[in-house]
């Protein structure tokens, strides 16, 4: 059982606020942009501890916090 954050890439507007608050440095820019042309972020699952800081700071509700059953993906 591990807590992780998932991100909906289509909603991300590339504001990068989550990058700054992630305590484990699990978030970084993906270098590519979504349909709306925003440079969206990516989560490094290994580093993510599911703390939810990204969920709290995100102005567009892109994150969902989940509890994985069994091994982390």
């Amino acid at each position: 059982m591990a807590k992780k954050a998932q991100v909906n890439l289509e909603k991300c507007k590339g504001c990068d606020l989550c990058i700054g608050v992630c305590p484990t440095g699990a978030i970084h820019r993906s270098g590519t942009s979504n349909k709306k042309g925003y440079n969206y972020i990516e989560i490094n699952f290994e580093k993510c501890n599911g703390c939810g800081a990204c969920y709290i700071i995100c102005p567009d509700c892109c994150f969902t916090l989940i509890e994985t059953t069994g091994s982390a993906r």
Partner: peptide, 9 residues
């Protein structure tokens, strides 16, 4: 996998 927190309803 269950959701702990997502966009408010």
């Amino acid at each position: 996998m269950n959701i702990i927190k997502t966009q408010p309803k």
